[in-house]
Nucleic acid binder design. Structure first.
Lengths: 196, 196
DNA sequence: AAGAACACAATACAGGTGCAATGTAAAGTG
DNA sequence: CACTTTACATTGCACCTGTATTGTGTTCTT
C-alpha cells in the first residue's frame, strides 16, 4: 500500500467544511464543489473520500451526533442526578459557537431526514438511546410524581425545541436555560402533596 | 382591467402544491418547474404570480403560519384556560395529515430561515405573539408556582420539539400528547407548598 | 527494478436550476 | 371600434449540479 493517510481524519476535515457551509448558507449551499472550496481541496478529493453526496451528508450528521454524545458522556461525570441530566441536556443547546454550528447542521439534517426514511432510523435510534439514559437517571433520582419515560420524552422535546428556537434567534440564551431550569424544577419537585 | 382572477386564491393553489412537494421530497425538491407540474400549470404561470422563488417560499410559509393561527383562534373558544392552552398547542402538533404536511413545511422552512436573517424576523414576530397569548392565559389561570412568561416559552419549545420528533417518527402520536399533558399537569398543579 | 496500490487532480457530461424575454389570447375600458 | 391591461405559455440562456472517466504522480511491496 502506498502513502499512508488517515481516512477518518480526512473525512472529518471535509465534514467540518460542510458544517461551516450548512451553518452559513444552509443545506442547499452544500455541494461537492463548495465543500471542496471551503476545505481548500479539489472536488476530486471530495469524491475520493465520499463516493456519493448522500454518503458525505450522512457522515457529517453522524459526526455531529458523535460529538454531542462525547460531550454528554463527559458531562455525565457529575454526581447529582439533576445536575447530570441538566449537564447532558445543555450539550444539545446551542450555547456557544461550536454548538451553534452543530445545531444548524442538526436542524438542516433533520429536515433533510424528514423525507428520507432510510436515514430516519439512525436518528430515531440515537435519540432513543439518549431518552433511555435520561429516563434511567430520573428513575434513580426518584422523582416521585412523574413517569420517567414520559418526563424524559418531554425533556428531550423541550431541549430540541429550545435549541431550534434559539437558532431562529427568538430569544436570548439565558431565557432558554431558564426555561430548562424551570422545567427541571417542576420535575424534581413534583412531590404533589407527598409533604404533609 | 381584463380577466378578473383572485390573485390570493391562485397563490394559495400554488403554495398548496409547494407544500405537497416539500412534505414528500423535501425543500430541495421544490423548484419552479416542480411546483408548476404538481399544480398542473405552466412554469410561466408560477413566475407570473411569484416574481422570485424566495417570494414563493415566503408566501407558502406565511400561509402555514396563518392556518395554524386560524385553527388556534378557533380552538380558543374553550372556556377553561387549561383546555384552551392545550387546544391551541395541539394545533401545532402534526396529529393528522393536514398538520403533518404543515409540519414538514414548517420544519423545512425553519431550517431555511435559520440562515436567512431577513426571514427570521417574521418567524420571531409570529412566535412571540403566540407566546404572549399563552403567557396571558397562564396568568389568568393563576398557576401560582410558575412564571407565566417562562412557562409559555417552555410550552412552545416543548410542542415544537415534540412536533419535530414526530416528523422523524420517533414515537407514536399518543406519546407526544401524553408528554404535553404531563407537562400541563406540572404547570397547573405547581402549587409548591401553597397548600398549608 | 517492476509493478501494483493508492491519493488525488482535471475534465467532460447530461441534466436541472432560476430567471428573462417574448408571444398570444382574452377581457376590460374609452 | 381601437387600445390597453392582464393572464398566462413558450422558449432560451447562463449557470450549477452530481457523477463518471481518465490521467498523474507517489509510495509500498516484491
Amino acid at each position: 500500500m502506498p502513502r499512508k493517510v488517515d481516512h477518518h481524519e480526512r473525512r472529518e476535515l471535509l465534514a467540518d467544511a460542510l458544517m461551516r457551509l450548512a451553518a452559513t448558507r444552509g443545506l442547499e449551499g452544500v455541494s461537492l464543489r463548495h465543500v471542496a472550496a471551503e476545505a481548500g481541496v479539489s472536488t476530486g478529493m471530495v469524491q475520493h473520500y465520499f463516493r456519493t453526496k448522500d454518503e458525505m451528508m450522512t457522515f457529517a450528521f453522524g459526526m455531529v451526533e458523535d460529538r454531542i454524545r462525547a460531550r454528554s458522556e463527559a458531562a455525565a461525570a457529575s454526581a447529582a442526578p439533576r445536575d447530570l441530566v441538566r449537564g447532558v441536556l445543555l450539550q444539545i443547546l446551542p450555547l456557544d459557537d461550536t454548538r451553534r454550528l452543530e445545531g444548524h447542521v442538526g436542524l438542516a439534517f433533520l429536515a433533510y431526514a424528514a423525507v428520507k426514511p432510510a436515514i430516519q432510523e439512525g436518528v430515531r435510534e440515537d435519540a432513543g438511546r439518549m431518552r433511555g439514559f435520561i429516563a434511567q437517571q430520573l428513575r434513580q433520582a426518584g422523582a416521585d410524581g412523574v413517569d420517567p419515560e414520559r418526563a424524559a420524552t418531554g425533556l428531550m422535546a423541550l431541549v430540541d425545541g429550545l435549541g431550534m428556537q434559539m437558532l431562529s434567534r427568538q430569544y436570548p440564551e439565558e431565557d432558554a436555560v431558564a426555561a430548562l431550569d424551570a422545567h427541571l424544577d417542576l420535575i424534581f419537585d413534583a412531590d404533589h402533596g407527598s409533604r404533609q
